[in-house]
């Protein structure tokens, strides 16, 4: 095996080990389950509100939309958070000190975050199937659509998360990016049909991956009649592919540049300095 294949395999094993660690310790497990539980509770309590078109219930529309949002959030936030934290504690520098360690580290992160993300979909979807009426998951094509939307959403959001994580100076400053992302979620048709928003807000939302992930998920899980609440009364699969694909390309081009720049700057004293700053903040 060449050194690169050795490192890629090591990265794969690393991802699986970290996934296991993450799903076998209380604190992480709470993190994995708390939001899904809160969202399912919301769906349960407000779910019976009827939307205008064809007897579609709010809960039915919420479940796929929230699944789409989870894919984006998991990809973006988990990835950026892990990068920022592990830069601060020296994990990244450790990877840098290991031959081909950076490759192994990145493969490992992609495996860990993708695994977390897919588990996140299952954690909401499986109980959701029992809680929510009116989903249309009987056909193979529904599951296939679900699969490609999750896959495309993952490859679109992971590199963006890596860019965010590399640009942030500390895990704490990452908290600040939560606000615009929450704002984006509010206008992206996740919690209410986007067609009820003013048109200029619709345009803003359509520039970002979040709306398209929600749309893709609704196209997979909802019956055809539900298309009535969407823009142009269409699931717009081609446009979904186009926008998510464009973000993927953007992320895959920018992420290596930003990651390399960030990794180059890592050294023992930069880790020590951040540790010092972090301790000062506590004191």
């Amino acid at each position: 095996m060449t050194p690169t294949t050795v490192a890629a395999w090591a990265g794969w094993r690393r991802g699986l080990i970290e996934l296991r660690q993450s799903f076998t310790n209380g604190q992480d497990l709470f993190g994995h389950l708390f939001w899904p539980a809160a969202m399912l509770a919301t769906i349960y309590f407000v779910g019976d509100t009827a939307l205008d078109a064809g007897g579609l219930l709010l809960g039915t529309m919420l479940l796929p939309s929230i699944l789409g949002m989870n894919v984006a959030f998991n990809g973006l936030l988990t990835m950026s958070q892990l990068l920022a934290v592990e830069r601060e504690d020296g994990t990244l520098l450790r990877a840098k000190a290991t031959p081909n360690g950076m490759l192994g580290y990145l493969v490992g992160k992609v495996v860990t975050v993708s695994g977390t993300l897919i588990a996140g979909v299952a954690i909401v979807l499986i109980p959701g199937l029992f809680l929510v009426d009116g989903l249309a998951l009987g056909s193979l094509s529904a599951w296939l659509t679900l699969a490609w939307v999750v896959l495309l959403g993952t490859v679109a959001s992971l590199p963006l998360g890596a860019v965010l994580g590399s640009l942030c100076s500390s895990p704490r400053s990452l908290g600040l990016i939560m606000f615009p992302i929450m704002g984006l979620a509010a206008i992206s048709g996740i919690f209410y049909p986007i067609t009820s928003m003013p048109e200029w807000l619709q345009w803003i939302a359509q520039a970002f991956p979040l709306y398209w992930l929600g749309l893709g998920m609704r196209s997979a899980l909802l019956p055809d009649a539900a298309v009535a609440i969407e823009i142009g009364e269409s699931w717009r699969h081609l446009e979904t592919l186009g926008v998510l694909g464009a973000w993927t390309v953007f992320g895959l081009v920018v992420a290596p540049i930003v990651l390399r720049r960030m990794a180059r700057r890592e050294s023992g004293s930069s880790v020590a300095e951040r540790r010092h700053k972090a301790l000062q903040r506590i004191a």
């Binding site: 660690q21 504690d89 020296g90 994990t91 520098l93 450790r94 023992g268 004293s269 880790v271 020590a272």
Partner: peptide, 13 residues
């Protein structure tokens, strides 16, 4: 081989 001043990585491993 490199040993740095402060390393707190891989706490869960």
């Amino acid at each position: 081989g490199v040993v740095l001043q402060s390393w707190r990585d891989h706490g869960k491993w």
